[in-house]
């Protein structure tokens, strides 16, 4: 039925466009364009509605039994069963946690060894040398030519510096003006 409606809407749209000889050519084209968009919107809305209905149809059957069995007595027993199930699960989880703790206690000797291993590893990571991410960045920062020497004689906060004397250092030269 929905499909029929949809097809009808579609055909109506098309027929409506062609069956207006009273309209001028450009006007008809303009109108048909507007209408076309309107029709499309209409179709999309319909499709969305159908999809929604189908989805609801899929979801509802699973939800139905609980709704149908929503008599007072049944729901009461349902709730009781649920509470029981939750209590059992909590008890099980507690037992599991306790046993895990015991395991952890038993393995504490191994734990200490594991810790020292981690410390050794991090020590290796601290040794000089760029990280993988830094290597990647450095590969992107291609040399753009040797930095021109600084040619100034008047300096503040320092004796005159020369880049040539600063090899082995990373230097940031910033041109600025206080104004």
């Amino acid at each position: 039925m929905i499909v029929k409606t949809l097809t009808k809407a579609w055909t109506d749209n098309g027929v409506g466009r062609r069956d207006r000889p009273d309209l001028g050519h450009s006007c008809a084209v303009r109108l048909s364009c507007v209408r076309h968009q309107g029709g499309r919107r209409y179709r999309i809305a319909l499709l969305a509605l159908i999809c929604g209905l189908l989805l609801a149809g899929c979801v509802m059957p699973s939800a139905m039994p609980t709704q149908s069995s929503s008599g007072n007595q049944v729901s009461q027993s349902d709730q009781d069963a649920k509470v029981e199930a939750i209590q059992t699960r909590v008890a099980e989880e507690r037992a599991e946690q306790a046993s895990n703790k015991e395991d952890a206690m038993a393995e504490s000797g191994d734990g200490v060894q594991g810790q020292t291993a981690t410390v050794e590893e991090s020590g290796a990571a601290l040794s000089p040398g760029p990280t993988a991410a830094q290597l990647e960045l450095l590969a992107k920062l291609r040399p753009q030519g040797e930095a021109p020497e600084l040619l100034n004689e008047v300096w503040l906060n320092s004796e005159p510096l020369k880049l040539a004397d600063l090899r082995g250092n990373v230097v940031l030269v910033e041109f600025w003006t206080y104004g």
């Binding site: 040399p143 100034n152 880049l163 990373v170 230097v171 030269v173 910033e174 041109f175």
Partner: peptide
């Protein structure tokens, strides 16, 4: 120094590596 760097902007920062190359 501005001219030797062919600089045009304030502020402009040149990051120079340990070998003296602008990176």
């Amino acid at each position: 120094t501005w001219r030797s760097y062919n600089n045009r902007y304030w502020p402009a920062m040149y990051f120079i590596d340990k070998t003296g190359q602008i990176r």
